[in-house]
């Protein structure tokens, strides 16, 4: 009997784990769909949407400008030294622009916003959960997902593509700084290449990615905060710290994973 149990044990452990993951995914999907639906439910929460737009979008502009500039500058360097070996440093503009618009722009923007706004969302909602503020909303008959998550999701749908656009534009300019001003490629050629090689389909692809990443980041971060109290590893302040950590880690990993999936479809 004991032997049977010991044989069964690892299967049980795996089974429980898989069941848990499936359940969690289901909960996440329901959470997302409810949030999405209540963006459009009456009465509109316009003030909260603007507030979140300011928090997620406006307040991230500086960080996005800085990372965009340095990423572009580094791409300028790396691209130049690689291309110069083949004597084709003239297409640096193409390389920088396409890399940024198709890949690095959406991905790095999303990861930066995760660090700046996503962690804050998880912590804020997590604290509201452990101090019964979310329960208080429910007792007032206020739909807590609609109140807390929907405005953030709506704000993410607007701000992620816009921030990605800023990142791309500043990045391309950063490539010009290193490529043209420092290493001597003619600015005319650089910008001609940018203009010539970037198609509308690349820009659309980048924006689709930004939209998806926005949904992923905000959903994961709000979800982690919202369900802080169901965590088994820790309660109270520890629970919030775990929620924040896993919000950032899971969001970052998922950004890269969905990026792969999306790229393979968009290409």
């Amino acid at each position: 009997m004991d032997r049977l149990a010991s044989i069964r044990k690892p299967f049980e452990t795996v089974g429980i784990r898989i069941l848990f993951i499936v359940q969690e995914l289901g909960r996440l999907a329901i959470f997302f769909l409810k949030g999405l639906r209540h963006i459009f439910s009456y009465p509109p929460q316009f003030a909260k949407f603007i507030e979140q737009l300011y928090f997620i979008g406006m307040k991230s502009v500086l960080v996005i400008c800085l990372t965009g500039a340095f990423t572009g500058m580094v791409l300028g360097f790396q691209g130049y030294y690689t291309l110069v070996k083949f004597g084709s440093e003239g297409i640096l503009g193409t390389m920088v622009a396409l890399t940024l618009i198709r890949e690095l722009g959406p991905v790095l923007t999303a990861i930066m916003i995760t660090g700046r706004a996503g962690s804050a969302m998880a912590a804020e909602i997590g604290i509201m959960r452990i101090s019964e503020q979310i329960d208080a909303l429910e007792t007032m008959g206020i739909h807590s997902i609609r109140f807390l998550f929907s405005p953030r999701l709506a704000a993410a749908f607007v701000s992620f593509p816009l921030l990605t656009a800023i990142f791309d534009a500043i990045g391309i300019f950063g490539g010009y700084l290193t490529g043209s001003l420092l290493l001597g490629i003619s600015p005319g050629i650089y910008f001609y290449r940018v203009e010539y090689s970037v198609q509308m389909v690349d820009i659309n692809g980048g924006f689709i990615k930004a939209l998806v990443f926005g949904a992923v980041v905000v959903t994961i971060c709000c979800f982690q905060g919202y369900y802080t109290h169901t965590r088994k590893e820790g309660f109270g302040a520890k629970g919030v710290s775990f929620a924040t950590t896993s919000a950032v880690v899971i969001s970052s990993v998922l950004i890269l994973a969905t990026d792969y999936v999306l790229t393979s479809f968009l290409m």
């Binding site: 604290i127 509201m128 101090s131 019964e132 503020q133 329960d135 208080a136 007792t139």
Partner: peptide
Amino acid sequence: YMFQETALFD
């Protein structure tokens, strides 16, 4: 509902 720990929105 009045909560034990007040549950005010901080």
